[in-house]
Design a protein around this nucleic acid. Structure first.
Ligand SMILES: [Mn+2]
Ligand SMILES: [Mn+2]
Ligand SMILES: [Zn+2]
Ligand SMILES: [Zn+2]
Lengths: 137, 137
DNA sequence: GCTAACTTTGCAACCCGGTTGCACGAAAGA
DNA sequence: TCTTTCGTGCAACCGGGTTGCAAAGTTAGC
């Protein structure tokens, strides 16, 4: 567990418990977004509800953001450093149909769309499905 | 129940039972996408499993398409007439944060995006959240 | 029309991801 | 140390979705 991980928790005003450090470390190391059940099986020795509350705390403190990729289980990934109050991590999420992983595409520009008259847009969620670079041989 | 509704079922090789006609009629009349629980409460006197299987049949026969708008319950809306084998209803879905309704925006062009190297795109799902025309006063 | 084969429906039970109440133990503060 | 707050484990719950099975309805052969 890198010292920076502990620092990040302290910066975001979250007490760096053992559990939280381990979860945050996983989120840092994995390029894929992780679900609650991913975490449960990754530790094999931790309580679902504790992990649930860890994710909830992280989300509230803007350490991670939720990804609803339509696969039936919510996934989470680290927020960008500049994710301040609004919690606006606006980027595309890619779901690989081969390895089933979900990835944040932070460097792809979000397109703009024109809504019909009198519609007001607040948030645009884009899920791209296909084959990821690792599976695309 | 319009005769065209019955015809549509026959065209798609689905037996036009009373239940199916009623459900399809609702889907025709409502501009909002409907969920299973929407249907259950709309009839008040029909079995959830029957409605579930009705939706399942309609989806398999390409009469309706599923919308995963991240609200926790899957919604369904009519397919376009030209929705043939591929079941590719590619359009944006709008979720109103006020009235909580989900609407197919069939006339908005889907933007194109550039994925990183070696990623292959198969499907782009776009959920726009905001305030719909009716709620935006 | 009468029966057999198939389809649709109703009911109950189940599954699974997510969530909560509660009690215990660890940590922080006075 | 004593008290208060916080984090964790466990069990139970919730709601959307799904399935097995038997009854009811429909279709087709005779
Ligand atoms: Mn992301
Ligand atoms: Mn649609
Ligand atoms: Zn992949
Ligand atoms: Zn609205």
């Amino acid at each position: 567990m890198l010292p920076s991980i502990e620092l990040q928790l302290i910066n975001k005003k979250v007490k760096p418990t053992a559990m939280r450090l381990l979860v945050l470390e996983i989120l840092y190391k994995d390029r894929n977004a992780v679900s609650l059940s991913d975490l449960v099986s990754k530790f094999e020795r931790a309580e679902k509800s504790t992990l649930f509350r860890t994710l909830k705390t992280f989300e509230e403190k803007k350490i991670i953001h939720r990804i609803d990729d339509g696969t039936g289980s919510v996934k989470y990934a680290l927020c960008a450093d500049d994710c301040d109050d609004m919690h606006e991590d606006e980027h595309i999420h890619f779901v690989c149909t081969v390895c089933k992983n979900t990835i944040c595409l932070n460097n792809i520009k979000i397109p703009s769309i024109n809504l019909p008259n009198n519609f007001k847009l607040n948030d645009l969620q884009i899920i791209a499905k296909g084959i990821c670079d690792k599976c695309n041989s």
